[in-house]
Amino acid sequence: MKVKILRQVTPVSEPYWECFNYEGPMDITVAGLLDHINYNDDIVNDKGESTTRIGWECSCLQGVCGSCAMVINDRPALACETFLGDCKKDEVTIRPLRKFPVIHDLIIDRSSIHENLKKTSVYIGELMQGEDRDHEHQYTAAKCLKCGLCLEVCPNYKNGSTFYGAAFANDCYLVYARNKNKAEDIRRVYGERFGRGCSKSLSCMDVCPMKIPTIASISKLNRG
């Protein structure tokens, strides 16, 4: 199998493609593949040239931390839960998420997700719950990994823009559901930073590793 990776040494250097040959079992994930390449004593690319280890981020390796979000065969996904056998191609193409600045190779800076939530005061403050009708949705929404996959696939989201995307909407919903005194303020900021800009392609739900039904957060916030 041919493995094609978009690499970049530093945040300011030019990206470049590098290819590797992989001959091994297909029942491993892309995370396992990256480990396999990196843990050889000498790393060589498909031209037989010596090269450097591939930078990528991981922590849990079981789909609950969101570290290893990347674009695999044009689909945004977590490397640790994307199996080579499911790639349906003789080649796997891996690149960093495009909506965030690259730090090194596949490592990206997703701090804008947190910055956007911080500057719009998306926090509960004092718990003042209304009638708790949506316990299950709150549970699911709180599982958001802040991995950025929903933003990568979103046709409306650009880094630095005033539209903050699905990760923002779901956290807004959590505040809305758990502090009724803050509900109107949160709905306002949600409207400004999400509601007005969302074209409802809902591609965010297709790629969410936690299967968060963002449409439910949207409808609850829109309905008020």
Binding site: S59, C60, C65, G66, R110, S111, K146
Partner: peptide
């Protein structure tokens, strides 16, 4: 990395 990447989430 941010807190979402910590082992605590596991």
């Amino acid at each position: 990395f941010p807190s979402e990447r910590s082992q605590s989430v596991m």
